[in-house]
């Protein structure tokens, strides 16, 4: 099938950037958005022109490296699907696909479709980890964790850090990302000990780059890990808990 592509071209962070129009004649419905960009780049290179810079790694929805805005929606039209899994069957022959970087004031564009997502890393560095001496692995069931709790923690731990939730949010908020981390780390024995300290540190870091949450709910629609919308409420829950409890755990 033949698709017209409008792809964002930006030579460096200081460049204003613009859309370039290209045509891919031999796209197939089972190709992904990332493969469409591959195909476009091949033909550009054949013509001696500059390919578009974009990120991808695993191409199976687990690494979070890919992520572009497709037709105004982070990752693309299919809900809860990363760009590397967005199939071209969402479009028909002759249609136009518009591809631009994930957009947020906290994600400066490095080049073309590549953005700097280190604002998310800073939040994780601030407290999105377990920093206690956990010792060697305990024997199974010395610290009982019931099955439902473990499953819940796993659901919220599924975040792959792609940053699409922020780009989907009209407020540029990172509540789905931060809430998913706060929830799963607060659920299990190791992470529980720093629950309060972590909430204070991660939310303080988050507020310097990201916006307030107004419950648009757009984040949970695009999240490729299917993090439930309840994660956004976990941010204020955890933050209020520190105030009421006044302790680090």
């Amino acid at each position: 099938m033949r698709l017209t592509l409008e792809v964002w071209r930006q030579t460096d962070p200081a460049d204003a950037g613009r859309f370039e129009t290209h045509v891919v004649d031999d796209a197939t419905p089972e190709m992904s958005v990332v493969e469409l960009l591959d195909r476009l780049n091949e033909s550009l290179v054949e013509d001696g022109r500059e390919p578009f810079a974009f990120e991808s790694d695993c191409r199976e929805g687990i690494c979070g490296a890919c992520g572009v805005t497709v037709d105004d929606r982070p990752h693309g039209p299919q809900p809860n699907t990363p760009s590397c899994h967005q199939r071209l069957s969402s479009w028909t022959d002759g249609q136009t696909v518009r591809i631009e970087p994930l957009r947020s004031g906290a994600y400066p564009v490095v080049r073309d479709l590549v953005v700097d997502r280190s604002a998310l890393d800073r939040i994780v560095q601030a407290g999105g980890h377990v920093a206690i001496q956990a010792g060697t692995a305990p024997d199974a069931d010395t610290t009982p964790v019931d099955h439902a709790l473990a499953e819940m923690a796993l659901d919220f731990a599924a975040c792959i850090g792609c940053g699409a939730c922020v780009a989907a949010c009209p407020n540029g908020a990172a509540h789905l990302f931060v809430g998913s981390k706060l929830t799963h780390l607060a659920s299990l024995p190791g992470g529980r000990e720093e629950r309060g300290k972590r909430a204070r540190a991660m939310i303080a870091e988050m507020e310097q780059d990201f916006g307030p949450c107004s419950s648009f709910g757009e984040c949970a629609d695009v999240c490729p890990a299917g993090i439930p919308l309840a994660a956004i409420a976990a941010v204020n829950r955890e933050r209020m808990r520190v105030v009421l409890r006044g302790k680090n755990d």
């Binding site: 929606r73 957009r103 780009a167 009209p170 407020n171 916006g211 107004s214």
Partner: peptide, 15 residues
């Protein structure tokens, strides 16, 4: 105003 600053120059479209 914080939401506007964090979102940056490219507004969310298509909602």
């Amino acid at each position: 105003s914080r939401a506007r600053a964090s979102r940056g120059t490219h507004k969310r479209r298509g909602m």
